[in-house]
Design a protein around this nucleic acid. Structure first.
Length: 707
DNA sequence: GGCGTTTTCATTTGT
DNA sequence: TGAAAACGCC
């Protein structure tokens, strides 16, 4: 194996064996190269078997890529290697071990929506007011507690007031229901293995022996349970290698603990630390800008990236009138630059920013892909089908029961469902169990019939799923449910769209079966619940890639647009809360360092939230932190500047218009104002014209003459 | 009781 | 803008 194409530091990191090793790997410093070479080195030089290596990455895509690159480097079959995300590795451990913890091997995984539904159920069950006890807040509280490894008992004991006690009660009941439902949430996936290791030392020993060498990517984003997990399996042999960059720690809100990386030495003892500071990705200009910004943070390990790359272009700064024109300006810039679409990425702070940009790109004929936002598997129609699949695999799953019992409509409404749930909760059994005894349910005759049919349907498909491929079973189920007709009957574009999404789901199921050993429905569901949008990203398509900055971590593009750089949006500012600007700044650092050649920043001077009234915004403080000499304003912007100020001047004059005023419009002629919503130039005006046509305008665009 | 329609309300980031 | 709650009709 060749280590020749590694620099000295990288080589050192690969060859260091026998004890904990922390590598600070700055953006673009060849981190993945080190990781893959290290794994290859362990196999070829040290003689470790692939199955004795555990490598944890951030996304499934990164895992696949890493595996592929190791395959290229070594001459042995590495199919037994354990490469995956924390969640997927843990899920496969639990699939084998969870019976020790009192769950059944066919457990299913609850996503956020599902677990929110459980929280809501608990709050209702405890007779608490849903307005006062917001399910989302409590879901968040439960997740935070779990991320701090605080058990229900701990919360209960440490409660100091009624509120804490309530929370303990909710948390406890939530966990109980999950167990009854034979389900785990995302946090449980990591926490339950830790519990297993604690309560069953021989299981811990087994995994300590199995995972003889442990590698962790993106170590700065690990949270307490994740730390505990890798610490447990590795502290005996101490053969652990972690790579990370504290400057790129952007998941604090999810419990990621930056001190995991900053205190690595304390946690593992005698650790070797290597810093990779040569950057192979970006131009000098981009690196300089990124460094100036991130060095404003106080809580960071001192380091500075350098590069042999050229200085390159200045960073382009686009300022636009509002989010629409920001999108237009981005489109214009993309067309002007003549960079291949596939080498362009547009990054933003929040998913909702994608819409206007999407609209413009579509109009401009620029192909694009969006990562994130409403995920395919989160769509209502997909969740409806997956609920059936989950229920077939795991009949205890009451949330999936609730989703499917009246879809498509079987005449079993809210009241009946509530009754079933109540009985299930009282007896601490699943809803499916309750409906086995239909006759004793206090529901109407029509409802009983529907429930009976549903019960039979599930049990038939349960039987079939034990023998047949999931895709075939679900395909037949769809036929039984007559879903195609159901959507076609609605004959709206949306409904037809939904049906084609369902068809796509079936395709994905059979594709999965073609490519995987374990073809069970349960394994498919596990895979799907842990899939992120980025895992399906096709980087070969010649299209612009749009995503949040969070999703972009680890990726690189020739040309990167970072948009919506306004104070309040990026950095995001929540009123009445502690705002962690350091994390936001790191996020900006991540955004900047995605670019190899061109970096373009943009902001809008006003922005509408949820399509309402525009709010005046100010340029992000982060842009101001970039040295001015590294920034450049595009030429066409200067002309536009004057246009904007003109427009602003014109419309800032008092608008003397109200209900009942008579106005004249160039096209529609005279009319009477029926309604005025909002104030000033952005107010929406409803006008009834002389020809009896009613129209709604935004004042500043309507060009009205007030008579 | 069920079901379609209207109103409300809330939007960071994601495994 | 979009989902979930509230409302009101069958």
């Amino acid at each position: 194996m060749l280590l020749d194409n590694l620099n000295n530091k990288q080589k050192e990191a690969v060859e260091y064996i026998g004890g904990p090793l922390l590598v600070f790997a700055g953006a673009g410093s060849g981190k993945t190269r080190v990781l893959t070479h290290k794994i290859a080195y362990l196999i070829e030089q040290v003689g470790l078997l692939p199955e004795n290596i555990l490598a944890v990455t951030f996304t499934n895509k990164a895992a696949q890529e890493m595996k592929a690159r190791v395959v290229d480097l070594v001459n042995v079959n590495i199919s037994g290697i354990n490469i995956g995300t924390f969640h997927s590795i843990s899920a496969s451990i639990l699939r084998k071990e969870i019976k020790h913890l009192g769950y059944n091997n066919d457990f299913t995984i609850y996503d956020q929506q599902d677990s929110k539904a459980v929280v809501k159920m608990v709050i209702k069950e405890l007779n608490l007011d849903l307005k006062q006890y917001d399910p989302k807040t409590y879901q968040y509280k439960i997740s935070s507690a779990k991320n701090l490894l605080q058990t229900t008992d701990y919360i209960e004991k440490s409660a100091v007031n009624v509120n804490d006690e309530r929370f303990a009660q909710i948390y406890k009941r939530y966990q109980e229901i999950l167990k009854t439902n034979n389900c785990v949430d995302f946090d449980d996936l990591i926490i339950l293995p830790i519990k297993l290791f604690k309560d069953f030392p021989n299981r811990l020993e087994y995994y300590q022996n199995k995972f003889k060498y442990v590698l962790v990517d993106e170590y700065q984003d690990t949270n307490k349970p994740q730390f505990e997990f890798i610490h447990s399996v590795s502290y005996k042999h101490k053969d652990i290698f972690v790579v990370g960059d504290d400057d790129q720690s952007i998941y604090g809100w999810r419990g990621a603990d930056i001190s995991n990386i900053l205190n690595f030495k304390e946690a593992f003892g005698e650790a070797e630390i290597i810093k990779l500071e040569q950057n192979y990705r970006s131009t000098k200009t981009i690196l300089e800008a990124a460094w100036t910004v991130v060095s404003k943070n106080s809580n960071r390990a001192e380091k500075k990236l350098w590069t042999e790359n050229v200085s390159g272009d200045k960073i382009k700064l686009i300022s636009s009138y509002d989010e629409r024109s920001e999108a237009k300006d981005i489109l214009k810039s993309i067309l002007e630059d003549k960079v291949d679409f596939k080498d362009i990425s547009i990054l933003y702070r929040t998913n909702s920013q994608s819409r206007p940009i999407e609209d413009e790109l579509r109009r401009g004929g620029v192909p694009y892909q969006i990562i994130g936002g409403v995920k395919f598997y989160d769509r209502k129609e997909i969740k409806d089908i997956l609920a059936y699949a989950k229920l077939i695999v795991n009949e205890s799953d009451s949330i999936s029961f609730n989703r499917s019992i009246n879809f498509p409509i079987r005449g079993i409404g809210k009241t009946s469902i509530e009754k079933i749930n109540q009985m299930a909760n009282n007896a601490n059994v699943s809803c499916m169990k309750i409906i086995q005894d239909v006759e004793n349910l206090k529901v109407g005759l029509k409802q009983k019939k529907g429930i009976k049919e549903f019960n039979e349907l599930i049990s038939i498909y349960k039987q079939r799923s034990l023998k047949e491929n999931g895709s075939i079973v679900i395909k037949d189920l769809l036929k039984d449910l007559n879903l195609k007709k159901y959507y076609e009957k609605q004959s709206t574009i949306e409904a037809l769209d939904r049906w084609s999404n369902i068809e796509e789901l079936i395709t994905s199921m059979s594709e999965y079966e073609d490519n995987n050993e374990d073809k069970s429905l349960s394994k498919y569901l596990e895979e799907v619940s842990l899939l992120t949008d980025i895992d399906n990203w096709n980087s070969d398509n010649n299209s612009v890639t749009m995503m949040t900055i969070h999703s972009s971590k680890g990726l690189e593009f020739d040309c990167v647009y970072v948009c919506g750089l306004e104070d309040g949006l990026f950095p995001i500012i929540r009123l009445l809360e502690d705002n962690d600007f350091e994390e936001e700044r790191r996020l900006f650092y991540v955004a900047l360092t995605r670019a190899k050649v061109k970096s373009i920043l943009s902001y809008a001077k006003s922005r509408r939230k949820f399509g309402g009234e525009p709010v005046i915004t100010a340029m992000s403080r982060f842009v101001k932190e970039i040295p001015e000499e590294l920034l450049d304003q595009p030429s066409y912007q200067i002309k536009k500047e004057s246009r904007i100020s003109l427009k602003t001047q014109n419309t800032n004059s008092n608008i003397n218009i109200s209900r009942g005023s008579t106005v004249e419009h160039k096209v529609f002629g005279r009319g009477k104002v029926l309604n005025v919503e909002g104030m000033g130039e952005n107010s929406k005006i409803t006008i009834l014209f002389v020809n009896n046509v009613t129209k709604k305008f935004i004042f500043k665009y309507a060009n009205l003459r007030i008579l």
